[in-house]
Amino acid sequence: MSELTLTVMRLGFLAVLWLFVIMAVQVIRSDLFGTRVTQRGSRREAGRPQPAGRQAPPQQRQQPAQGRQRRNAPTKLVVTEGTLTGTTVALQGQTITLGRAHDSTIVLDDDYASSRHARIYPDRDGQWIVEDLGSTNGTYLDRSRLTTPTPIAPGAPIRIGKTVIELRK
């Protein structure tokens, strides 16, 4: 075997060994910070209620699902009445669930809300739809109680128990 081949193999083997170590460390890194977990985390984070007076960092929130949104589409959901008044949630094309269940996007602290009360989601054209999920006291859009999934006009108040939310641009 020529000297050159053996030298190349010797250095190559060391390189491969270190490559394995580096890959293992990368696995630990993704285990700590979790690429998949981060994505889910940021989506959930965007969906969770923001405390009053806090603005969401704009650059991160507005990026995805822009293609689907129409020009005059609302960009945020604002709670205007009830215990969560002032909370805003960025609309990024994800479904927002409302209710007292702990896994809801917006957890309502409202005695008149059901655990899974309503959901708000975009249809294929990017039009936002509100749907009542069989709640005890019903969901009201403007003054009328919802019976079917209904498109939301910008600025129209949605009332759930004592809570009122609006979609805004």
């Binding site: 985390g41 969770r48 923001q50 806090r54 969401a56 960092p57 702990h102 896994d103 809801s104």
Partner: peptide, 17 residues
Amino acid sequence: SSTTNTSTQHTSTIGSI
């Protein structure tokens, strides 16, 4: 930071990831 902030208010909104 907003995650930690909101999670102190509504600890249980974070579903199990």
